[in-house]
């Protein structure tokens, strides 16, 4: 086997195709557009009488969730099933880890079951990266969310939502609102929007919920909701992640809602055809008013549908990239032996 080229990002193969999907950091616009285009085709599959294609027939996808999840886990399961793969889901928080098994041992056991792909969610930032680097080079690793770091499939499904409702990214103003500090979704969205050429990315949050160095993402920072929402095309609300908060970052949920909750009155400052997004689960009356979540601007449930298509695209592209890499290495090996 050829040693890993340090100049090549871990998630790409030698031909620049996806072989893992860990983060949107460093991925080119063409690749993100290819993911969106492929997902568009899979969306059409979801509207058929038989919502299944034979692409991953005979492959095994293993969902390994070290952290709770409903939407991400079930949509990954559905995505894999619609590609005809066999799927097993492991909630590690309720299994061997509680009996003292280490992360590496758990994964080696799954590898021994001949899994072709792991979808991993973990509370620690960098977990998916670590697994891709150290555990199983021929198994594709898909990041289903790692700590505060990245949630790349959520980022891409948000991009698909924006593209399908707004047609593109070139002339858009997009505001990301709420708990930026704890949000891997915010990070993935900022990276994707920047790469896809969105000219006006805004984040709106109280100072205590903004990470240090947020400016490096090329975003405008607002601490006032009315000012930040003025004339935006897209509002991405984030969930207030109380479970990740230690110490007094917020006076109270009521106070947060009063200043940063998305209400009908506040939304009136955005463009008349603005769309409202939320990665879920939504906290009604904490970050978003019910009338907005259920209102005509909301595309929150469309996001769930698009999420399945994005996950189908990423699973099939990573599988495809793994196959190409194996053939490439095989070819090199044969060449070396022939010399």
């Amino acid at each position: 086997m050829t040693p890993l080229d340090t100049k090549r990002p871990l998630q790409l193969n030698d031909q620049g195709q996806l072989r893992h999907f860990l983060s949107l950091d460093g991925l080119r616009r063409e690749l993100l557009t290819e993911i969106l285009d492929t997902a568009d085709s899979f969306l059409e599959v979801g509207a058929r009488a038989v919502k299944k294609v034979p692409l991953l027939r005979g492959k095994t996808v293993c969902n390994v969730f070290f952290e709770n999840s409903t939407r991400t886990r079930t949509t990954f399961e559905l995505a894999a099933q619609r590609l005809s793969a066999d799927v097993i889901t492991l909630n590690v928080s309720t299994s061997s880890a509680s009996k003292g098994e280490t992360l590496l041992d758990t994964l080696r056991n799954l590898e021994a079951m001949a899994a072709d792909m792991f979808v991993v969610r973990h509370g620690d930032s960098g977990a998916a990266h670590f697994i891709a680097e150290h555990v199983c080079p021929q198994v594709a690793i898909i990041n289903g969310g790692d700590g505060r770091h990245a949630h790349p499939t959520q980022g891409m499904l948000d991009m698909l939502t924006i593209r399908r409702h707004k047609g593109g990214f070139e002339n858009l103003s997009v505001a990301i609102v709420g708990d930026i500090l704890h949000s891997r979704v915010a990070r993935s969205n900022m990276l994707a929007l920047k790469t896809l050429g969105c000219p006006d990315i805004r984040v709106i949050a109280p100072k205590t919920l903004l990470p240090i160095g947020i400016e490096q993402y090329g975003v405008k920072v607002y601490t006032d909701m009315t000012e930040g929402l003025k004339d935006v095309d897209v509002v991405i609300m984030l969930r207030l992640q109380r479970e990740r908060m230690t110490g007094g970052l917020l006076p109270s949920e009521g106070e947060f809602y009063r200043l940063f909750g998305l209400t009908t009155a506040r939304l009136a400052g955005a463009k008349p055809d603005a769309i409202v997004m939320h990665p879920g689960p939504i906290n009604r009356g904490v970050e978003i008013e019910s009338a907005v979540a259920d209102g005509p601007h909301s595309v929150i449930l469309n996001q769930v549908t698009y999420g399945i298509a994005i996950r189908m695209a990423v699973l099939s592209m990573a599988m495809s990239g793994q196959t190409a890499q194996r053939q490439f290495e095989q070819g090199q090996f044969e060449q070396e032996n022939a010399q």
């Binding site: 195709q17 285009d37 085709s41 294609v53 034979p54 692409l55 599988m319 495809s320 196959t323 053939q327």
Partner: peptide
Amino acid sequence: DVSFYRDDFSQNGLHPQVRPS
């Protein structure tokens, strides 16, 4: 567009310009 139904996925992978049927 038959890209999702081809029998050579495990050899050639996914066609990069797949479009909806």
